[in-house]
Design a protein around this nucleic acid. Structure first.
Length: 561
RNA sequence: UGGCCUAUGGUGUAAUUGGCAACACUACUGAUUUUGGUUCAGUCAUUCCAGGUUCGAGUCCUGGUAGGCCAACCA
């Protein structure tokens, strides 16, 4: 909020220019206008950060407005979910508004348009109206009802409102220009008949205003100064302005629509239709599945609000098409989590390791730093004993010198504990390693200050004491799609690119202090990644979700070899 | 035979509005490190093309090219 040096995006340049032209800063007002017909996703997060970010920068109010003009799709459940998501992101709206609160006002204005000869009731079926629209290169033709008298229009519109007609029998249209090069100006429909209950107005209305007629007028009612939307609405601007022309008075603020490009994220899809398909066809387990790009999914995965905000801030806002690399989101998650997540040890693919020269039955509680990035985080105690688990990946019978981990005859440090040396392996009849036998250097205890403890060994491994470790279900999430742009391949369905390994569930061995971990809390499993406790987690059955792995230069080296 | 929008490293955004193409991520080097994490240092660009104006062009002009959006009683 204090970064004055950050360059302005093009929207901010527009605002600055308006201010320069004398627009009073105190009259600046923005809005975030979702339709409550589904869950918010990362694209919305960008828009939220844009609008609320503008509010913060210019100390201007930002309304949360629900664009609820289509009772067929909208539900209270979504209103609640959207409010939760915006709040979670850390923003506070000024007024909570609903387009449905303006139904009467909109109706009155429609009557005014009819009286001025600028709107008429059309009584043709929608297919007929569509046919008369023409094409982008050919003019449309006028409706036979276009010249109805004002009196007739007034009467019909009233009857539409009173419920005298069935759905589809009549619509109210603006009388603009059937030959306009902009298709949207060819007498756009303003109202349709819908005998449907609305989640807020119930059955008070049976005619519902359409987007174009509603949006600009709502901005005007709320005195929004800058109305920002995505690029596909650019052609709507001319109509937005036409509708505004009909009602604006000079003493009020005239809202200004400007368009920006929606942000696309690699390795995912964001269209509501496609997300719905993922849910309905069982590719994921719900709208808040941690693999979903929904805000609720990201939250459940363990993403932090700050990470999402910083991400939105970094990618900025512009007008060109884009596909933002999801690696950037990963970066911001790691950046935030690195500062705040307590370190713990967890072994997700355990193999038994026995320290043969460590006294049987003995246990030691060792000091472990909670977060090297945060000295305030302090220390905790973890149990050490003769029998441990380490990661199967961390041992090889033999390996070259690039392999910093444990190999036969080699030494390695156990994090916060001792230096050990692998002496021998035991295998099952199939040749699988079932136990690694080691010896330890009793004088090498971490933090003891002895010369032995100060010895440099190349590798440090995480571990847990097998007798003390607790089990947890650990859900290892990976990108949902193996392709960067799954929905941009001609003739191929995006579901073909689903990553079959997007979820792996394992039983991990965790240090015992994690027994009481609360849902939502986040940790770094050292050397593995960031994890958070899932909302389904119970004290007798812990569940962790992997938020993001640590950066891993070793696996890259391995891949190259 | 239309209207509108866009074009800057692998990715996303900048460029005091005509003055040394910058920042972040990724990738790759190297240093540090009791996390192969973190941190630090470094490497990676004929600004879509072709002309033009100018002492000077990513920015202005002309002409191309490529991509996106628009014909729902959805938003």
């Amino acid at each position: 909020m204090t970064e004055k040096e950050k360059p302005l995006n093009f929207i901010e340049h527009i605002v600055e220019e308006d201010l320069l032209q004398g627009f009073p800063k105190s009259q600046l007002r923005f809005r975030f206008p979702p339709e409550p017909n589904g869950y918010l996703h990362i694209g919305h997060a960008s828009s939220i950060c844009l609008n609320f970010g503008l509010g913060i920068r210019y100390e201007a109010p930002v309304n949360l407005r629900f664009d609820d003009t289509n009772p067929i799709k909208e539900e209270q459940e979504f209103v609640d979910a959207i409010k939760e998501d915006v709040t979670w992101l850390g923003f506070t709206w000024d007024q909570e508004c609903f387009a449905s609160d303006y139904f009467q006002k909109l109706y009155d204005w429609a009557v005014k348009l009819i009286k001025e000869g600028k709107a008429y009731v059309d009584s043709q079926p929608s297919e007929e109206i569509a046919k008369q629209k023409g094409t982008p290169t050919e003019a449309g033709v006028n409706s036979p009802y276009r010249d109805r008298t004002v009196g007739e229009n007034l009467e019909l519109f009233k009857k539409m409102k009173d419920g005298d007609f069935p759905e589809g029998s009549h619509v109210l249209r603006a009388k603009i220009d059937m030959a306009s090069p902009n298709m949207l100006l060819r007498d756009p429909v303003m109202y349709r008949i819908l005998h449907r209950a609305h989640h807020r107005t119930n059955t008070d209305w049976c005619i519902y205003p359409l987007y174009d007629w509603t949006h600009g007028e709502s901005d005007y009612i709320e005195q929004v100064s800058h109305s920002l939307c995505t690029l596909e609405f650019a052609p709507h601007r001319e109509l937005y302005d036409w509708f505004l022309d009909q009602v604006v008075t000079p003493e009020n603020i005239r809202p200004k629509q400007r368009e920006f490009a929606r942000r696309n994220l690699s390795h995912t899809v964001v269209s509501k239709r496609k997300l719905l398909q993922l849910v309905e066809q069982g590719f994921v387990q719900g709208w808040d599945d941690p693999r979903m790009p929904t805000i609720s999914g990201l939250r459940r995965k363990g993403c932090t609000p700050a990470a999402l905000r910083n991400f939105a801030d970094t990618i900025g806002i512009a007008k060109r098409e884009n596909v933002v690399d999801v690696a950037l989101l990963d970066f911001h998650m790691r950046e935030d989590l690195n500062k705040m997540a307590p370190r713990v040890m967890a072994v997700l693919d355990p193999v038994k390791l026995t320290i043969t020269n460590y006294e049987e039955g003995k246990e030691e509680w060792l000091q472990a730093e909670n977060n090297p990035e945060d000295p305030e985080a302090g220390f905790r105690e973890i149990p050490f004993s003769r029998e441990l688990f380490i990661e199967r990946d961390d041992f090889r019978e033999s390996a070259n010198r690039k392999f910093f981990r444990l190999k036969l005859g080699g030494e390695v440090r156990l994090k916060n504990a001792y230096i050990i040396k692998a002496e021998e392996v035991r295998k099952d009849p199939d040749g699988n390693i079932i136990e690694i036998l080691c010896t330890y250097d009793p004088k090498s205890k971490s933090g003891s200050g002895t010369p032995e403890s100060l010895r440099k060994v190349k590798g440090t491994l995480h571990w847990v004491s097998s007798g003390h470790a607790i089990d947890a279900e650990v859900r290892l999430y990976d990108r949902l799609f193996s392709d960067a742009t799954p929905d941009q391949h001609q003739g191929r369905n995006f579901t073909e690119f689903i990553n079959p390994d997007s979820l792996k569930v394992v039983t991990g061995k965790l240090e015992p202090g994690l027994a009481g971990a609360e849902p939502g809390s986040r940790y770094q499993f050292q050397r593995l990644g960031y994890f958070c406790v899932d909302r389904e987690s119970k004290p007798n059955h812990l569940v962790f979700n992997r938020t993001v792995t640590l950066r891993d230069t070793w696996s890259k080296l391995e891949d190259k070899a």
